[in-house]
Simulated assay, not measured.
Amino acid sequence: MKFKLLLVICWGLLVGCASSNDVADNINTAEPEIFNLYPGDIPGAKSTVNLEHVRDISHPDTFLMDITLPTLTAYWPEPAKANGTAVIICPGGGYAGVSIVKEGSQVAERFNQLGVTAFVLKYRMPLTQSMQDKSLGPLQDVQQAISLVRKNAQSWHIDADKVGIMGFSAGGHLTASAAVHFDNPVTAELAEHNIRPDFQILIYPVISFMDEITHKGSRDNLIGPAFSPEQSVYFSNERQVTDNTPPAFIVHAGDDTSVPVENSLVYYQALHRHQVPSQLLIVPDGGHGFGLRNNFDWFNDLERWLRNRGLLSHTNLLSNTL
């Protein structure tokens, strides 16, 4: 136990968080920068100790558990490559933790190769001991992240009209939730901010909380086993799609036994009904949780989709009104 506590303390010292009010204007560094997601007290949070810990310290794909202090880690592209597009990445982990390497930093570095500024969101886990309403805590964090990126778009050399979100597994559920609930801010502070993502990228996402196809672990962790019918519908994102839902790129493996591919299918069908431009890619195998490590390089298709939507072309940020 002492060793685990020491590890968590050392992790915090190594990453060192900057205040979101103290944003660095010099981004010509290849090193990631970590920002606190909130400038002060977290709205709706209870006073609690930092419960974050690493699930398996010997595993190279770091998995963080019980996150209570959310951060946003920025991965900057080379200035000559930067095109103004930004993506906020929500790693998965069943709303119990986040796979911060395989579905976070490695993906961010791949985006940097395209000139995209990538942010890895370490969002809070839904814990009753740290949140007044645990079901809304993660959604509040991703809405705050979108607002924070747009707020600092000029100093971070980002086009405020090219800010998207991406999520894996339960992080995909969080991403889709942000994409369908942007007109319903969790906190009053965000009511005057634009928190609509300009695009969404979903990789083997949990979408529905309906019994037939949901990932019950994610559902139970977020809203509990004794959820109401209203909660089930609210968090079944295929039920919340509108004509104004952002364009989507979706990837799922046909042989996924953890999160059935039907999650992506029902979401795509809802997007299609509302004429939301979307692309669905079903890869033949890979199961669940493969990140970038699939026999089929789906990221190449994502690059083509981003390029076709004009998201990889350079923007004259000096003329952009933010």
Rank of each mutant, 00 (worst) to 15 (best):
P79E: 06
S105A: 15
A176R: 00
I57C: 13
S105Y: 05
S177P: 08
L136H: 07
C90I: 01
K162S: 10
H157T: 08
E109L: 15
N112T: 09
Q106L: 14
H157Q: 15
R150N: 11
N152S: 12
A74H: 05
G97K: 01
V186F: 10
R110M: 07
I195C: 08
M125I: 12
Q144Y: 02
F111Y: 15
P70K: 04
M131H: 13
G84C: 07
S177K: 08
W156D: 07
S99A: 15
S135T: 08
E103R: 04
A82E: 11
N194W: 06
S155A: 12
G92I: 02
H59M: 13
D133G: 04
M65R: 12
I100P: 04
C90E: 05
I165A: 11
M65E: 08
S58F: 13
M166V: 11
N194M: 12
F119N: 05
G97M: 06
D56I: 07
Q113R: 09
K134D: 08
A176E: 12
I89S: 04
D56G: 04
S130D: 02
L72M: 06
A170Q: 01
A82K: 10
A108G: 08
Y123K: 00
L190E: 14
Q113W: 06
V120G: 02
R110L: 06
A86L: 07
L136K: 11
F63N: 01
D161C: 13
T128F: 06
A145F: 04
L190R: 09
T73D: 10
K151Y: 03
A179N: 12
V149G: 11
Q144P: 01
P126V: 12
A160K: 09
H193D: 14
D56W: 02
L148C: 03
G115I: 03
L174F: 04
D161F: 00
V107D: 04
P91R: 03
F63P: 01
V163T: 11
I57Q: 13
R150V: 01
A179D: 10
I67V: 13
A188H: 08
F182W: 14
N112Y: 00
E78W: 02
G164W: 02
V180Q: 01
D133Q: 13
S130Q: 05
Q132D: 12
A176L: 10
N152F: 03
